[in-house]
Nucleic acid binder design. Structure first.
Lengths: 215, 215
DNA sequence: TAGATTGTTAATCGATTAACAATC
DNA sequence: TAGATTGTTAATCGATTAACAATC
């Protein structure tokens, strides 16, 4: 049930799942299918059908008892609610291994992102080619970000440098940071950070497995 | 409060935070400090002190009113509870950009992991150098994994190939997979998967920022 | 029609936070 | 001692799941 004026705020876990639903829906459409159902989506994504229906109730979408949900309607509604139609500009700060991989990763452009600039402070990296970008000195970031109104940054630098650079970027106009470092970034709303914590995930995995097998 | 026989199972959110506490503690120790407190850790990691104390109550550690927690004691207890003392062997499946970055990322060896093998199915990549590894054909993985009793794999392949390879790896003896693809992997316990979903995180960020600024 | 699936409410489950006595 | 911090309980908050009438 969706209020006519003003959409209900989406809880974080719901946001994350809606993003997965959208991917599933696109995939099914490409396979030439017309319908999906809460049961099907749940099976595919490792959820319960109840969760799926609950999540979809945040959207202005109506399913058809017996048939499920019309895939193209669902795609439209999801993409719309998630603002997934606009192409977004990104800057990358930190041109080390991880930054390079993410930037050159085909997924970025496939998902409609455009990498606009790559910054680093290491003189040995500055000037080097980097996909279709050339690494620039971090000191240029501030003016370029505000001149171009870039809003999103991926931060792939050592933990020690992360908070300082986050402050610098947000001062320059950046509003959202994908944090690829292990540092916790503290930023004032409405600026936002999403953490990735790859190394933490690995440790979590090893721990869970060790525990699961020795018990 | 910790039961004397058999440790309480750790909830997933607690596991993740304990990992962060351990990092904080190591860092503080390197700075030459002797004490930390729930308030300090909470501030550093963006939590409440209540959460920190609650989490630490899963451990056999006693703080000192007025002083907080002894850093070296805390390090020991955390590392012990998290099985963070052993060095672990990893194999990488998928030698594309992302896989390469993670593998060459200094963090791996710094955190005590050892990359033992890199596999791909692309003939153009097989034989190529890759840090101190040479990319091998995926068809060799099964025998090598079971011969060496490797237990952990990082899976950095296209979504379509992910589930099939996960099954193959687990059949060969792998018990834990760090899933760097966007696919949802369904595996039978006690085998485990931890997802990373980099592209999803990026989309989550863009959505949250868009929403935050337009409201 | 019969049967499967939706939409929604209420129950359950789990995680976080508040509060405060104990204590060094 | 006075004051800050722990350890723990209980309250709150939020998310997931169960259940089932409505319905195509």
């Amino acid at each position: 049930m969706n209020e006519s004026e003003g959409m209900a705020r989406l809880p974080r876990p719901v946001i994350r799942r809606l993003i997965q639903y959208l991917r599933h829906v696109k995939h099914e459409l490409q396979d030439g299918n017309r319908w999906t159902s809460s049961r099907k989506m749940a099976a595919r994504l490792g959820l319960t059908s109840s969760t799926v229906r609950q999540d979809l109730s945040y959207l202005n979408v109506t399913g058809v008892p017996r048939n499920g949900y019309d895939l193209s309607e669902l795609q439209q509604v999801l993409a719309n609610r998630l603002n997934a139609n606009s192409h977004n500009d990104l800057v990358l700060v930190g041109a080390g291994n991880l930054g390079r991989a993410i930037a050159q990763h085909g997924g970025l452009s496939r998902q409609g992102y455009r990498l606009c600039a790559v910054y680093d402070k290491n003189p040995e990296l500055i000037g080097k080619d980097f996909g279709d970008q050339t690494v620039r000195c971090i000191s240029r970031a501030s003016t370029e970000i505000s001149a171009n109104q870039w809003r999103f940054a991926m931060l792939a630098v050592p933990a020690e440098a992360a908070q300082g650079l986050a402050d610098y970027l947000i001062n320059s106009g950046i509003r959202g940071i994908l944090n690829l470092s292990l540092a916790h970034l503290s930023v004032k709303p409405p600026a936002q950070v999403v953490d990735t914590r790859l190394m933490d995930s690995l440790q979590e995995l090893v721990f869970s497995v060790t525990e699961a097998y020795q018990l």
